[in-house]
Design a protein around this nucleic acid. Structure first.
Lengths: 162, 162
DNA sequence: ATATATTGATTCGAATTTGAACAACCAAGG
DNA sequence: CCTTGGTTGTTCAAATTCGAATCAATATAT
């Protein structure tokens, strides 16, 4: 790492743009959700994931992976959501250690109520700021980056020695 | 807002991709910086901004705006950096209320040491994952989104009446 | 069967973030 | 001059995040 390849101007713009967009978008989404249904963004994501499931339930670890948070972070959020009545915990019948997070009816309603405003904001600040062609390219590019970040990666930087 | 326009599949992919990339990238960068020079990402950004200045100093409010953090958040980080000896505070001569954050020599060295590893990570996970053409498109798209988020916006939704 | 390793979820402490409240101060107009 | 409004940075409490440690239970291997 003696002589690093610095970023070109356009690479810098992309990276800076990414940081700025991430940071500002995150705050706007957070504020919007909090002011509407009193949800945090992580909480909203939890509800979305649960609702996307046939039974409205998911194991804690699976859910933590899905919403990209630590296990302890999810424990905290589920506790909050449980206090709010939007989710409840259910013990796993086949594994005593396991716990399901289950979407309640009230949780489903909260999501139903929060979704339109949330989508409207995302559309206003993100989607509608861009040309349709840009959206498609963004989707591809960001998914590529996501794969590399996840590690389901064809070559992290030269093939793994195995 | 009675009947919201939901996201199309490709719009969903773009948005999800953005969330995933933001979240994972943020964590990776954080870990990398912390393990190398013991800096957090916000702290690194502070050092970068200060070093980009002729005198290596910036008013607190300006700096807070530059690194996209709240004023109180910056106060906290500068205090941390001051404890670490990488930054010091200097009272503004012309405005008693004002404070400059000033990069110390040690701070400059810490940035100098941390930068290569940081850039290498950004390159590995973000830049080098993409084709040059994708980088350029990302740069444009994300800057557009950034402008809208900042509000220096030609049309938040319909041109301003002026 | 029994020892060993792995997994599932929670608890805990430390670090960080935000917005509101605050105190002191500058700037401008009357 | 002096009031009025906006600015500057900090303090404060509350919420949230993470990783390490923990404890129990399960899976695996011998």
């Amino acid at each position: 790492m003696d002589e690093p390849r610095w970023l070109s101007q356009v690479e810098m713009r992309a990276w800076q743009g990414f940081l700025v967009a991430s940071s500002l978008m995150s705050r706007r989404v957070e504020q919007q959700l909090k002011s509407h249904e009193g949800l945090s963004h992580p909480q909203y994501e939890v509800l979305v994931r649960l609702s996307a499931t046939p039974d409205g339930e998911l194991r804690m670890t699976e859910l933590a992976d899905a919403v990209l948070t630590s296990k302890s972070g999810l424990t905290y959020q589920i506790t909050q959501l449980e206090k709010a009545g939007l989710v409840r915990r259910r013990d796993c019948p086949t594994d005593v250690r396991g716990t399901f997070a289950v979407l309640t009816e009230e949780g489903r309603r909260a999501l139903h109520d929060a979704a339109p405003g949330h989508v409207a904001l995302v559309r206003e600040l993100f989607i509608d700021a861009l040309e349709p062609g840009q959206i498609a390219l963004l989707a591809d590019a960001l998914e590529t980056v996501g794969h590399r970040l996840r590690g389901d990666d064809p070559s992290p930087s030269g093939p793994p020695v195995r």
